[in-house]
Amino acid sequence: MSTTRTILICSGKGGVGKTTTTANLGIALARQGAKTVVLDADFGLRNLDLLLGLENRIVYTAQEVLAETCRLEQALVKHKQEPNLALLPAGNPRMLEWLKPKDMQAIVALLERQFDYVLIDCPAGIEDGFKNAAAAAREAVVITTPEVAAVRDADRVIGLLNTQGVQPVQLVLNRVRPKMMSNQEMLSVDDVTDILALPLLGLVFEDEQVIVSTNRGEPLTLSDSSSPAAQAYGNIAQRLQGEDIPLMDPSQARRGLRARMRKLMQTRIF
């Protein structure tokens, strides 16, 4: 019936970049012309509005929509610069127990009527918050970093998603440090995909610009930034839309301009 894609952004472990990814993917998808809504299911500790710079515009939440004290249009917060993107907080931080899986499904069903993409920012952990968020999702993107603990938690979450019938589940490897990877001080891309056995939707390199943009409330993908993370998020959004974009190669990333020039010289163009 509906062609809306409802995607859960989850990780299990905290601090690996669920919210950052949700914000950047949301902006990137919206810039590519898809009507997108980001649903903050991590409303106990809500941050998504901060990252998008929409903190002061929130009046209602999905809670009021379901209680019919306001209309959905009133609760949806449109992004300032990117009209294709809207934010909906799932609930009031002080009424955590209120939300049940069926409420989440009801919210998402409402959103699916008018959006192409519904991105659900999932809370860390695998308790009720995760179960609520997962109940409404059709597909999922699991975020992990090349660390043993993050991979272990991601593995657990993938197992739970499989039992809930969320399909397909794809992987984003975040905060990759190419130099450490090439020195084998960090798990390699192969180490991670070997354990998790999921299709890799994208690699995002560690990038200081992410911290800057997070604090400013302007996701990297909002401007035509040439920072590696911004490009990576853009690529992930395009791959979600079904385009075939090659993955970044961490072993190539650290090469300076001179090395790139040399490589270009060696390439036989003529």
Binding site: D155, R156, I195, A197
Partner: peptide
């Protein structure tokens, strides 16, 4: 996957991996 626990009184033949 992590957190799963397969138990049986019988011999188990698993076609797949046992993850950390």
């Amino acid at each position: 996957r992590s957190g799963d626990h397969l138990q049986s009184k019988r011999t188990i033949l698993l076609y797949g991996d046992v993850n950390p």
